[in-house]
Computed example of a mutant assay.
Amino acid sequence: MSEEITLTKNTGALKGKTIFITGASRGIGRAIALKCAADGANIAIAAKSAEPHPKLPGTIYTVAAEIEAAGGKALPMQVDVREEDQVAEALKKTADTFGGIDAVINNAGAINLTNVESTPPKRYDLMLDINARAVYLTAHLAIPYLKQAECGHILSLSPPLNLEPRWLGPFAPYALSKFGMTILSLGLAEELSKTNISVATLWPRTLVATAAIEFAVGSREMFDQSRKPGVMADAAYEVLITRNQGLNGAQLIDEVLLHERGVEDFTQYAHNPAKAGELAVDLFLDP
């Protein structure tokens, strides 16, 4: 776990809290799970990866073992976020197992960086379903549980709205699916503003070394231009420990939030610290 959590300290604020994370078997979702587990949180791992993949390490069961080793409690569940019945059952099982749900993190994602002409309809539907629709579906089904929490959170990993043509022209289908997550989150923040539930989005300032970068965006060589998933885990943790809707409706960038919370040295987050000055800015963000 040391490679995931590099800078910010755990406070114990999430001890006994229950965090439902989609796509938590790998990458950023796994890093967030381990960060919260180190606080003693209960982690519901809602992901499709139940069997080992030849190229992608990690399953819901391997992450469950890591969570338990880190000090948390784990509930691994094979879930397709496109399926209403599966999401509803997973949320119910989580609440029944741990006595409630305190936060939902929409981390599962699908990416295909192609323009409209080059995007097959099935791929378009997949991105909309796993990205934008899943935010609606998980929120719709989770709100009744979150309203019973002392301080509920819905956090979606999506970018701040940026409608510059240079971001839309090359891959409008993917942009639509990710901006859809953000628009739904902004709407939810207003809808739930008079409740105990805070809604926000979070996006990395730089590329993050994940399978998406290796296989969908470029290649493993791009890891030298990336930060480790721990930077997003630390930022997500800061969101989850924020009380009284202090970040409700916020479109957050990991680096900006962490800097506001006292982090000054980001070198240790770099996948290759020797090249920490050569990091690539992530999609949808201006340099």
Rank of each mutant, 00 (worst) to 15 (best):
Y237V: 09
L247P: 11
R220M: 12
E255K: 12
M222L: 15
Q251M: 15
A233D: 15
G230K: 02
N248F: 14
G246H: 07
T210D: 00
Y237L: 07
I241S: 02
L257C: 12
A212C: 02
E255Y: 07
L258M: 12
A209I: 04
D234R: 13
G218Q: 09
Q225V: 09
L207H: 14
Q245F: 08
E221W: 07
A211W: 08
E255F: 05
D254F: 09
M222F: 11
E214I: 00
E255W: 07
F223L: 04
P229G: 01
E238Q: 15
L207W: 15
N244S: 12
A209G: 01
K228M: 11
A233E: 13
A216S: 07
S226Q: 05
G246R: 05
A209T: 04
R227Q: 15
A235G: 09
I213Q: 00
E238H: 12
R220F: 00
A235I: 12
E214G: 01
K228W: 02
P229R: 01
G249K: 05
G230W: 03
P229M: 02
F223V: 08
F223A: 03
L257W: 03
I253C: 04
I213F: 00
M232W: 08
N248Y: 14
L240A: 11
F215M: 03
L252I: 13
A236K: 10
D254C: 06
Q245T: 11
A235L: 07
L257P: 14
V239A: 08
I253Y: 02
R205T: 14
A209F: 01
A216C: 07
G218C: 05
L252N: 09
A209R: 04
T242F: 08
A216W: 01
P204D: 05
L240Y: 09
I253F: 05
F223R: 14
L252P: 06
V231A: 00
V217R: 05
L252K: 13
M232S: 07
W203E: 08
I213L: 04
N248V: 12
I241C: 07
V217G: 00
V239M: 05
L240R: 08
A236W: 10
G230R: 03
N244V: 03
R205P: 10
M232G: 03
I213V: 12
T210Y: 00
R205N: 13
A250E: 13
D254R: 08
L258Q: 09
S219E: 10
G218T: 14
A212P: 01
A250Y: 07
E238G: 10
Q225F: 14
Q225A: 14
L202K: 12
G246N: 05
G218K: 11
V239N: 06
L202P: 08
V239R: 10
G246S: 06
E238V: 02
T206L: 01
G249N: 09
D234G: 15
Y237C: 04
Q225Y: 14
E221M: 04
W203R: 12
I213M: 01
A212D: 02
L240F: 10
F223D: 06
G249I: 11
Y237M: 08
N248G: 00
P204H: 10
T206Y: 12
F215Q: 10
L258N: 03
M232Q: 10
L257G: 13
V256A: 13
S226V: 08
V256F: 07
T206A: 01
L247Y: 10
G218P: 04
L207D: 07
A216I: 13
T242M: 08
G249C: 04
L207M: 14
F215L: 05
E214N: 05
I253G: 02
